[in-house]
């Protein structure tokens, strides 16, 4: 649940979601659920040559299980906070 909470805090920020099929989509994080399904808005495809048809998509829903990486805005990563949160999670879990 730690990552769920963490991603919820990132709602409204720009992220890049890289899928396991190599597609990378950049957009504003609209919402995330407990399965780490991700909804993006104002999306654009990073590799537009490879996926030209995705250009048109403004918002999309990405299944959590197909996400390989989520690239975060550097200032959206509070290392100390995450450090504490992971320790709390480890203790509580």
């Amino acid at each position: 649940m730690l990552f769920f909470s963490y991603f919820k805090d990132l709602v409204g920020r720009e992220v890049t979601v890289e899928l396991k099929n190599d597609l990378a989509i950049r957009g504003t994080l609209h919402s995330v659920d407990q399965y780490l399904n991700i909804k993006l808005e104002n999306t654009r495809v990073v590799d537009q040559d490879k996926y030209p048809h995705m250009l048109s998509v403004r918002n999309c829903f990405i299944r959590g299980s197909v996400v390989r990486y989520v690239q975060l805005p550097p200032d959206g990563v509070d290392v100390d906070l995450l450090h504490d949160a992971t320790r709390r999670e480890a203790r509580g879990g």
């Binding site: 899928l19 999306t43 030209p52 048809h53 250009l55 998509v57 403004r58 918002n59 999309c60």
Partner: peptide
């Protein structure tokens, strides 16, 4: 993945 596509060019 699913999305709404509205761009006539795509």
């Amino acid at each position: 993945l699913h999305a709404v596509s509205r761009d006539p060019e795509a």
